[in-house]
Design a protein around this nucleic acid. Structure first.
Lengths: 245, 245
DNA sequence: GATAGTCACATTTTCGAAAATCCTTAGAAT
DNA sequence: ATTCTAAGGATTTTCGAAAATGTGACTATC
């Protein structure tokens, strides 16, 4: 796992660096879903103090990657089937909108970045035949490609939300890899997606991205659905009412 | 402002309590947008230590109510015209979806809660004639009403996102109140909205909520648009060399 | 006059000890 | 056997001092 590495932190502050490393460890499932995060352990893992850890943890709570249980510490957010399904539906909505807006606003440079991202992803896949999708590097390039599609949507708020959804969904994909029995070929889909987006065919692109997201989820459920907890009662942090009293 | 009050915190942890109070102070504009948050000041205001403050601040950064500037501390997130417009568009998308899903899934109890929320809001408005919309209590009841409309949408992720958007938007409404020159009557809209939702007319409800959100934003811009900064390119990728001077 | 370097001060950020809280076990009472 | 209470240890949470960093003023040099 990435923990304790990165000697020269690109982050500006130590808490930011820990946040970055912790997030990576959680979405890569190096920190396993549902495990309690004891401070003594974390302190050793990331080599920082209590307070600094807490800062990072609070951010991760807000991102939905960690849950805090009252005064009983923190734990890596569990993986629920119901959460995966919820996530899938919301991602379809958001990604469809982002793609449509990108098609509307994107310029030549946007198209170029999509083609570049696809190329990088495609070449890595050729180099790492068969088990390419288990490598960390492919996860990065695959994420970059999908982001390039939506990057011209002109909405920081929507884009930020999309990224968080993508990260949360990545944990399920990651878990599914370990138990995979079969894997459908997605490379054709990616190419079609790219071509459709660059052809500025918004309705077709929306259909494609929806199919892509939903089929991936189905794949995850087939591979690892039995390992997902089915406790659906968890309604994450809901902010009640507003304003003072 | 709510700061330093609430002697017996309903929150489980002190950091959670400070987070709650700070959030209230920010969305009510008691902490003015764009002001730097010095720790010495905050420590006195909220009567907690540095580390506890930082925990709350990190959460607020993730919620978009506070921005952190490298090693130069934190500041209350500024109010930008471009952010308001972005926020408006995203809120339309999300609220429309939430309402449609609520209409699909809502039961009798959901309808009852809508009616109850509307009634509370309506009666308060009758009691506080004219300047009702400046009171904190009305902000709460108005927020509760809008939330009741979408509360049956069956998606924790979407609902949570919606709440954060609503809070961010509330700061703009709040600011606009202070400079208001005119205010359009929204009470009729609210009633129509309620009736349409309970009549399960999804397309009509989606139209109404879109109009409601967009017109409110237009109202805010007319009242206080001149006080909103137009500074940031707001797009991380576009260089702001032009605005720089 | 403008630029670079240096120092003192203000502010933020980090740390680990101390306080608060939770959890487990043991023993007693019903 | 079950429930309740107490004590002890384990863990989290909070605090303020100490370290790190940014800021601004002043001087020296070109």
């Amino acid at each position: 796992m990435a923990a304790k590495s990165e000697p020269r932190g690109a982050e500006e502050t130590r808490a930011g660096d820990v946040l970055h490393r912790m997030r990576l460890d959680i979405i890569s499932c190096a920190l396993k879903p549902g495990t309690r995060m004891r401070f003594e352990t974390l302190k050793e893992l990331y080599a920082v103090s209590f307070s600094t850890l807490r800062e990072a943890l609070q951010r991760l709570v807000a991102e939905g990657l960690v849950v805090s249980e009252g005064q009983r510490g923190f734990m890596v957010a569990p993986l629920y089937l119901s959460d995966l399904q919820d996530l899938t539906n919301v991602r379809v909505l958001v990604d469809q909108e982002c793609i449509a807006r990108s098609i509307l606003h994107g310029d030549d440079d946007w198209e170029a970045q999509i083609i570049a991202a696809f190329h990088r992803m495609d070449r890595l896949k050729a180099r790492l035949n068969d088990l390419y999708f288990m490598s960390d590097e492919w996860a990065v390039l695959h994420g970059d490609f999908h982001r390039s599609l939506v990057s011209a949507c002109q909405s920081p708020t929507l884009l930020d939300f999309r990224d968080k959804l993508f990260q949360r969904a990545h944990r399920y994909r990651r878990m599914s890899c370990q138990f995979r029995t079969k894997w459908r070929p997605k490379d054709v889909e990616h190419r079609t997606l790219m071509e459709t987006v660059i052809a500025r065919d918004a309705p077709a692109a929306k259909n494609l991205i929806e199919r892509h997201i939903r089929e991936t989820t189905e794949n995850v459920i087939q591979n690892a659905g039995q390992f997902l907890s089915t406790e659906p009662t968890a309604f994450p942090g809901i902010i009640k009412s507003m304003a003072a009293e």
